[in-house]
Simulated scan of single mutants.
Amino acid sequence: MAGTAASTHASGQAPLLGIGQVLARLQPEFPELTPSKLRFLEEQRLVSPARTASGYRKFSNADVERITVVLSMQRDQYLPLKVIRTHLEAIDAGETPALPGATSAAAFLAGARRLRRDELIAQAGATASLLDDAVSASLLPAADLYGDEALATLRALVALRSVGIEPRHLRGMRAAAEREAALIEHAIAPSRRSDAAGKARAAERGLELAGHLDAVHASVLRSAFSRLAR
């Protein structure tokens, strides 16, 4: 592994990144990413960074994209890491597996989007003021780079603005989300150990519970609208 890290740099390829550099690149989109989380992903065989002679982890650009795939599918599709790992292993073996109810990892591997502010606005068909309003309402983060989730959110806000629903009308959604996050935090507290692996497993379980809450929220909203539309 140490030889791999040295030869990659010497051969003129992109230099390998330390943990701090990986965090700096990915935390704007994944603020919960920590060194412990990166180590846990390695323990779960989802990424295999090189090692220096001193034992420090070094990540290639391909490693960073793979981490992005894992975190995106975990966050956006609420998939357990073991499901993501099995899916990625199949892709690594040259297969094209289907992943029911979720975007294929192959689509992410083909090139996860990293959009600058102006690119995000253009692709969403939005305006700078709408993005600013979304950030002000805590619906989107203030960041230098945005991913697919931010793009989907801003596109949805464009559609809502067209019928007079503004980001300021949705401020309560952030407060509701924080309350739901607190419920999940309380639910996983008994199984949350102090070691890094225990914290990462608890976070994964939390994302699964968030998926269940999302399904309940969608059902309740549809039910409420159906009553109003009668």
Score class of each variant (00 low, 15 high):
36 S>V: 11
36 S>F: 08
36 S>M: 08
37 K>G: 09
38 L>N: 03
38 L>D: 02
39 R>L: 02
41 L>N: 11
42 E>W: 05
43 E>A: 14
43 E>H: 14
44 Q>N: 08
44 Q>V: 07
44 Q>P: 13
44 Q>S: 09
45 R>S: 09
45 R>Y: 05
45 R>I: 06
46 L>D: 01
46 L>A: 03
47 V>L: 06
47 V>E: 04
48 S>I: 05
48 S>H: 12
48 S>D: 08
48 S>W: 10
49 P>K: 13
50 A>W: 11
50 A>E: 09
50 A>V: 08
51 R>S: 12
52 T>R: 14
53 A>V: 12
53 A>G: 12
54 S>P: 12
55 G>R: 14
55 G>C: 12
55 G>I: 07
56 Y>F: 09
56 Y>C: 04
56 Y>Q: 12
57 R>D: 14
58 K>Y: 00
58 K>A: 06
58 K>D: 00
59 F>E: 02
60 S>P: 00
60 S>A: 04
61 N>I: 10
61 N>T: 13
61 N>F: 05
63 D>I: 07
64 V>P: 01
64 V>Y: 01
64 V>N: 01
64 V>R: 02
64 V>M: 04
65 E>V: 01
65 E>A: 09
65 E>C: 04
66 R>Y: 04
67 I>P: 09
67 I>Y: 04
67 I>Q: 10
68 T>F: 06
68 T>P: 02
69 V>S: 02
69 V>E: 03
69 V>F: 02
70 V>C: 03
70 V>Q: 02
70 V>F: 02
71 L>N: 13
71 L>W: 13
72 S>A: 14
72 S>K: 13
73 M>Q: 07
73 M>A: 06
74 Q>L: 14
74 Q>G: 12
75 R>Q: 15
